[in-house]
Amino acid sequence: MSIITIILIVIVAFLAGMEGILDEFQFHQPLVACTLIGLVSGQLEAGIILGGTLQMIALGWANIGAAVAPDAALASVASAIILVLGGQGVDGVSTAIAVAIPLAVAGLFLTMIARTIAVPIVHRMDAAAANAEFGKVELWHILAICMQGLRIAIPAAALLFIPSDTVANFLNSMPAWLTDGMSIGGGMVVAVGYAMVINMMATKQVWPFFAIGFCLAAVTQLTLIALGVIAVALAFLYLDLSSKGGSGGGNNNIGDPLDDILNDY
């Protein structure tokens, strides 16, 4: 692996770590992080497949109250690096997925360390704000975000300096019962993630569209792009018919359909 590739992968890992807190450009999402690492390493197809599969698993990962979800950023970056170093291409995706879930849980330890260090940083920012030293406040903000980036970049850099033969031998030595078990467990997590998303979105207005999509998904000739076009078309039809109130626009008492949907929550 060339020096340029290593630098680009570490940059992606650094951005993924920061986005785990910022949530602005979504670099920490598996689909984005794995795709970027696959792109810079010349294994774009394998990166996209790995990222898409991990994204399904990460749908159910969310911080609720004091409970911290598994670290999607570390899972994405580390599993993508292991996939690249393993040299198995698309065939190694299932093994990389099996490694990703334990890495996501292990990432909670790094998250705990970073958040513990952030406590005195917050106190320093408070002291700077009390003295109207806004430049120092901005500086501490930047340092705190960079610390989150290093939380992922340092483990990523460490993985990159492991010989590829060692990684390949480790992946090949994993027994089938372990990889198969982790794949099954990952599939169960995907189902739970979908259930949580549906539970948040489910209203009497959207259930018919869910049923239509469920039936259309069984048509194997339809691609994801075709399903997306159908979904957008149905959404426009629903909004248009709702605004007209089913009576050609003659009922002026019909409100905005978006307001009706929001009121159901």
Results as ranks from 00 to 15, higher is better:
V197F: 05
P257R: 04
G87Q: 07
F109I: 14
M174Y: 04
I9L: 04
C146N: 14
T166S: 13
G51M: 06
A231M: 10
M147T: 09
A98M: 07
S79Q: 00
D180N: 15
P120N: 02
Y265M: 14
V192T: 03
N251E: 00
F27I: 04
N263F: 12
G65L: 10
Y238A: 11
A33L: 09
H123G: 04
T220Y: 01
L216S: 01
M112N: 08
I57N: 02
A78Q: 04
S41G: 09
G249T: 02
N263S: 11
G65D: 07
V119R: 04
A235W: 15
G187P: 10
L36Q: 05
L50C: 06
A156S: 01
Q148E: 11
V93Y: 11
Q29M: 13
L50S: 03
L139T: 15
I225H: 06
W207K: 08
L103I: 14
N251D: 06
Q43C: 03
E45I: 10
Q55A: 07
C146R: 12
H123P: 02
F109V: 14
A233C: 02
I212Y: 07
T111M: 12
V167T: 10
A157F: 06
V10G: 03
V105S: 06
L239D: 01
A106W: 12
A168N: 14
